[in-house]
Design a binder for these strands. Structure first.
Lengths: 159, 159
DNA sequence: GGATCTATCTATAAATC
DNA sequence: TGATTTATAGATAGATC
């Protein structure tokens, strides 16, 4: 009955690990909820069990998606300003291709929306639909991000 | 000295709220760390103070980015399979435009990478660079997601 | 597999430095 | 503004049903 102090290492026993996972996940989400209410802030959490193809999105898939979006927007105005500020320098290097990008984006938007509409109609799961939205949101940038992380490391290794 | 029971509402007093925020944020991240180690899973947390243009990414901006990416990938194979399975039905509706989408995506990837490379070279902030990556990752899908959420609501309102 | 119990550990509100 | 203290609220490991 007497409780042991926790060791900071993975729990080997699977049943104990699962029991601990449930208890502590509940505790974590409760704490997150309290923090967000007490301090009036947004909190978003992803708990991902890779090998089980299973993830918990908190507070909910859709709210999480919105929060990710808002968070990632939060400096977008500043970013846009910087792009405009450096426009002449940029143009030198990217040679006016941004307008083309915008056109391409719009074309893709339409096509992807269409594709997702079809898939939505095939889907009866709420969660499934929202996860697909997140997947779609990411599928654009997947390879690009990998590429950028690589570039990033190259740049950083020069410091 | 004696401690009160917490009330579940926003703390009005700003100093008390800030003190509580720091303590509880530390506590939350500590709990998240323990959960991920004890149970061998990935946890990603965003704590976002909207009005302060300020966000905490845990475990780190780059690791968070990677975890978001991995999470959003986690059903991508299944998704691709489903698309292939429904190909004949899909083709009827989207008329073979997926290949075109892939080509467009690649074109955008190249152009965006180029653009971001330039911006990276202008940036001396580590965090700034990584937040820009996240912004870039999202900027593709921003308008699309809004559109999809709208479509989603329309679909749901028919149930 | 979950629900409940309880002894104990851990987090933290308020005070103080 | 931040670190330390202390009393107490809250979380949870292990047991049991």
């Amino acid at each position: 009955m007497t409780r042991k102090r926790i060791k900071h290492e993975q729990i080997i026993n699977e049943e104990r690990r699962n029991v601990t996972f449930k208890k502590r996940m509940d505790g974590l989400l409760k704490k997150a909820n309290e923090l967000s209410i007490l301090c009036g802030i947004s909190v978003a959490i992803i708990i991902h069990k890779k090998w089980e193809n299973n993830a918990v999105l908190w507070p909910s898939p859709s709210v999480l998606g919105e929060r990710l979006q808002k968070f990632m927007d939060y400096r977008s105005e500043e970013r846009e300003r910087r792009i405009v500020t450096h426009e002449s320098f940029m143009e030198q290097l990217v040679q006016g291709e941004r307008e083309e990008i915008i056109k391409l984006k719009k074309a893709i938007q339409m096509k992807e929306s269409q594709e997702l509409m079809v898939k939505s109609m095939q889907t009866n799961s709420f969660n499934g639909l929202r996860l697909d939205q997140l997947n779609a949101m990411n599928s654009f940038a997947d390879d690009m991000l990998k590429k950028l992380l690589k570039k990033d490391m190259e740049l950083n290794s020069q410091h």
